[in-house]
Simulated assay, not measured.
Amino acid sequence: MAELMSEARVACRTPAEGRDGVTNIPTWKFEILRSAILDVLREGEIAFKDLKNLAGAKLNKDELERLGSLGWHVTTVKLELEVRGEVERVPDRMPQVIRLGRAA
């Protein structure tokens, strides 16, 4: 258990106003999902509802098994990427559509 506590982590924030919470996830999870999400978005805008499956298709079987809840982790990393400006929501599109941000 001590090994899990000492594992390097990334603080994932949310862009939503009024929400101060930070979720810390292991760096390796953040990096593989960041890479997968950005790869998917380099192909163009996508509906957020499709992100889990498209990003998951970029991961190998071992990564998927070690990751845990794919949907939860994809959403957590996507929100942090929004805060960083690497991903942005397309304005006035419902359901939510995302694309690469200026910082990507």
Rank of each mutant, 00 (worst) to 15 (best):
G56D: 03
V97D: 01
N53T: 09
M5T: 05
E3Q: 07
E45P: 08
A2C: 00
K78S: 14
A103V: 10
D50T: 09
V83G: 05
R9G: 00
E3M: 06
S6F: 03
I46T: 11
W28R: 15
A16K: 12
K52P: 00
R13E: 10
V40K: 08
V74W: 08
V22K: 12
R89M: 04
R84N: 04
A55C: 05
S6T: 07
R13F: 09
R99W: 01
H73D: 00
P15M: 08
G56P: 04
T23C: 04
P15Q: 07
R89L: 11
L81H: 08
L54R: 15
G18A: 02
G85E: 10
A47G: 08
A103M: 10
P95E: 08
A57S: 15
K49G: 08
A8Q: 13
G68L: 08
A36S: 09
A47E: 10
S35D: 10
T27K: 12
I37T: 02
V90E: 07
F30M: 13
V74F: 09
S35V: 00
A55L: 04
K78T: 11
I98P: 02
D92N: 15
V40A: 06
D50N: 15
I46S: 04
V22Q: 14
T75Q: 10
A103N: 14
A57T: 06
V40W: 05
A11R: 14
I98Q: 02
L59W: 05
I32C: 12
R102H: 08
A11D: 15
I46V: 15
S35C: 03
R13H: 15
P26L: 11
E3Y: 09
L67Y: 07
V97I: 11
V87H: 01
L70G: 05
A2H: 06
E63H: 11
P15R: 12
L79F: 09
Q96R: 14
E17S: 14
L4S: 09
A103L: 05
R34G: 04
A47S: 03
V83N: 09
R99M: 06
V74L: 09
A16V: 14
A104W: 06
M1T: 03
E43T: 07
A36I: 02
G21W: 06
H73W: 01
L59Y: 07
A16I: 13
I32Y: 12
V22H: 12
L33N: 01
G101Y: 10
T75S: 13
T27Q: 15
F48W: 08
N24E: 15
E17F: 14
